[in-house]
């Protein structure tokens, strides 16, 4: 029984790291642009396909392909930001959060459906990072999962380092706290918005490329991560990167244990997604801005 618990927990943490990776991108976009990106799951999907084609068309090995997918996703997200999100920055703009939700929702519908036409309807799978499974007693984890979790952790560590220790990272943080004071010290806030959306897209795209050999790629793969990412960023507090990481891992873990131990095994997996949503609703009831939410993150 203890073995079973430990194995399920280990797998839950691996999944949680991937959740965290998707959610941090969403939270960074929110912290800067103050919009909820409803197309985040679609950026994750696009990243997966970018990685796939870098491997199959350009012959790049799977691991460097993840980096390439992140770079392409960054450029792709920046193009979206330039094309669709610039109205958010005009001072006369009213109801920015409504605009943000709607424009990204339209984008999600567009990307999900054009993906069927461009990439085809059948799931695609890039080659494994490393074939085989790690076997430790009763614990079996495929190397692909280990690479995804390890790669995800590495990206998250680099991200935290970047945000805290580099000039650009600190500039991002400054703009997220106060656009006016940031501009006083000479930070071009519009460039930071562009950069933040690109960074969010790169994180989502990297996650998509990392999970591709595990889950396979399909045009509708963004639907579930989309909702889960919302749950995570709310639990972690919109705009809080470390909160998202902790909440992501916790959600992965608790979802797995929920499926593993729910007395009614027939219904359990059906309610797995509802479980996270339900926890999130409870948290919002008692803390209307999330667990680690900063108050300035509430919309103006």
């Amino acid at each position: 029984m203890l073995d079973y618990f430990l194995i399920q927990s280990a797998n839950g943490i691996v999944i949680g790291v991937i959740y965290a990776l998707i959610a941090t991108g969403l939270t960074i976009i929110f912290a800067l642009l103050k919009i909820v990106n409803f197309a985040h799951g679609e950026l994750y999907m696009m990243g997966g396909y970018f990685g796939y084609y870098v491997i199959t068309l350009a012959g790049v090995p799977p691991l460097p392909a993840v980096v390439a997918a992140m770079a392409i996703s960054f450029a792709f997200a920046v193009a979206i930001e330039r094309g669709l999100l610039t109205p958010l920055y005009s001072p006369g703009m009213e109801r920015k959060s409504d605009y943000g939700i709607l424009i990204t929702f339209g984008l999600a519908v567009f990307l999900r459906n054009i993906a069927i036409i461009i990439f085809g309807p059948f799931p695609l799978r890039p080659p494994s990072f490393f074939d085989g499974d790690l076997v430790l007693g009763g614990l079996i984890i495929s190397y692909d999962r280990l690479v995804a979790a390890g790669g995800g952790l590495l990206i998250l560590v680099l991200l935290i380092f970047f945000l805290n220790r580099t000039v650009w990272g600190q500039a991002l943080n400054a703009v997220s706290q106060s656009r006016e004071s940031a501009s006083i010290v000479g930070i071009n806030s519009e460039r930071m918005y562009m950069f933040a959306f690109g960074l969010g897209g790169a994180l989502a795209g990297g996650a998509g490329a990392l999970v591709a050999p595990i889950y396979s790629l399909s045009p509708s793969m963004g639907l579930v991560p989309d909702t889960q990412a919302f749950v995570i960023v709310i639990l972690g507090g919109l705009g809080s990167v470390s909160g998202s990481i902790i909440a992501g891992i916790l959600l992965g873990l608790s979802e797995n244990l929920f499926i593993a131990f729910l007395p009614d095994p027939n219904r359990g997996p059906s309610y797995a997604n509802a479980f996270g949503l339900f926890i999130m609703m409870l948290v919002l009831l008692f803390r209307p801005t999330g667990i680690f939410g900063r108050h300035h993150a509430a919309m103006e």
Partner: peptide, 19 residues
């Protein structure tokens, strides 16, 4: 036999398969 159902959009079955 035993019956199980899951969300049609689900792609991660680790916990289920282990169970």
């Amino acid at each position: 036999f035993q019956l199980y159902t899951a969300d049609p959009q689900a792609t991660d079955f680790t916990a289920q398969v282990l169970r």
